[in-house]
Amino acid sequence: MILSREYVGYLARQTVKHLIDAKMIETSKPQVLNERVGAAMVEEMALEDRINEEVRVILEAYQDEMHRTGAAYAEMFKKVKTELARKYKAVL
């Protein structure tokens, strides 16, 4: 994950605070809400890591073919990652 868990927690707390201050949400337990929002943010941000790992596995399976055809790893990584992001409906 690009951001540390502590920073994601900070972002979650600030997001919840902003939403409460703007009267967009109400809660009697802001700490619980902070934890849930933080967990959701961590999960969403970890999605890119999971996609990257899946791309590596796929490209490893096609390693010999890529070498024979002269395909660039970085270019293939980007193409496969784009397709997987579309498949998982992720915005990266």
Rank of each mutant, 00 (worst) to 15 (best):
E60T: 14
V91Q: 08
R13D: 14
Y10G: 04
A39V: 05
L84Q: 09
R5T: 08
L11G: 00
K29D: 15
Y73T: 02
E44R: 12
L19R: 14
T27Y: 10
M45G: 09
K79W: 14
G38K: 11
M41P: 09
K87D: 06
A40H: 13
V55S: 08
K81I: 00
E44Q: 08
V80E: 03
I25N: 13
T27L: 01
L3T: 01
E53W: 04
E35R: 12
Y62C: 03
E60I: 00
A74T: 09
K79A: 12
Y88Q: 03
V32G: 06
L59R: 13
L84G: 02
R86M: 06
A12V: 04
H67M: 00
Q31N: 11
L59I: 10
T27H: 07
K89I: 03
K17E: 15
A12H: 13
K81F: 11
A22K: 13
H18P: 03
M24V: 12
E35K: 09
A46N: 15
Y7I: 02
E44D: 13
Y10K: 13
A90R: 10
L19K: 12
K81Q: 08
S28A: 01
E6A: 06
F77L: 10
Y7W: 01
H18E: 15
K23M: 07
K81Y: 10
R5K: 14
K23P: 11
E75V: 09
V8T: 06
E35W: 09
R68G: 02
K81G: 03
N52H: 11
R68M: 03
R5P: 15
E43C: 00
A72Y: 09
A39R: 15
K29P: 02
E44T: 05
R5I: 01
F77R: 15
L11I: 09
V42Q: 13
A46D: 15
E75A: 04
V57Q: 14
H18W: 11
E43I: 00
I51L: 07
T15P: 09
E54A: 00
A39C: 04
A74Q: 12
